[in-house]
Design a protein around this nucleic acid. Structure first.
Lengths: 115, 115
DNA sequence: GATTTTTGCTTGATATATTTAGATTTATAT
DNA sequence: ATATAAATCTAAATATATCAAGCAAAAATC
């Protein structure tokens, strides 16, 4: 399975960079880069990761996905909710503030009164 | 100017969540959440940010934009509408397919029968 | 083949993120 | 207005990320 360390090491090798070269460019110590590549670090900062992504010509998202720090695809449930949200957004476009509250009240009503 | 803290606070308020509720859901201490919202933290981990993005129904990218990268801006109305839709979707999470349709029908109903 | 350089790594020191406990403020009810 | 509870914030303690220095193996130079 792919890890952050493997991803970073592979990306660096691809560009034939040495740890110290990356240190020069990024300002991140080679010691820390080594620890990152060997998966000694659990939660690096966004700061560090976006620097490296940029150097290695990866989008931050790509990097995070490959490193399994975020999920590539949303769950079906999440997807379903998003779809529903879009439908609501579309239909609610020209609603007044009062009408919006009305909708929210109606939602609560449905939830409290079902079986 | 928009910051990470303001973004997080606004997102939470949009869903009418309290810090302790978010702590419950996310496992992140309310103390730390508070510091994040007041921009006391310079480099939060990806871990933390992706958890919060997920809870607040923001894309990680959206969130990172405030901390780091580029961005695009929707109109205020569009933004507001989307927020509303997310709020509804969130509250409707455990609704059945039939109940969801019901909500959408109700939305239509409001629009056709007003004034 | 010895010497010097380069490269990746480990260890201990420091900075900073994150938590625990508690203080302060804000809201709610009596 | 006072008391009680809820919500947010602060300070000190702890965990963890990040750095500086130095070590050992490999590569390059002589």
């Amino acid at each position: 399975m792919s890890t952050l360390g493997l991803t970073l090491k592979e990306a660096r090798k691809n560009l034939s960079f040495t740890l110290r070269q990356v240190e020069e460019i990024s300002g991140i110590s080679n010691a820390y880069l080594s620890q990152l590549e060997n998966d000694k670090i659990k939660n690096p900062s966004v700061n560090i990761l976006s620097k490296l992504a940029s150097i290695y010509r990866l989008s931050l998202k790509q990097l995070l996905v490959k490193a399994n720090l975020i999920e590539k695809d949303k769950s079906k449930e999440e997807e379903k909710n998003l779809n529903f949200a879009q439908k609501v957004a579309f239909r609610a476009e020209d609603l007044s503030e009062e009408e919006r509250k009305e909708v929210l009240r109606y939602l609560e009503y449905i939830k409290t009164h079902r079986k």
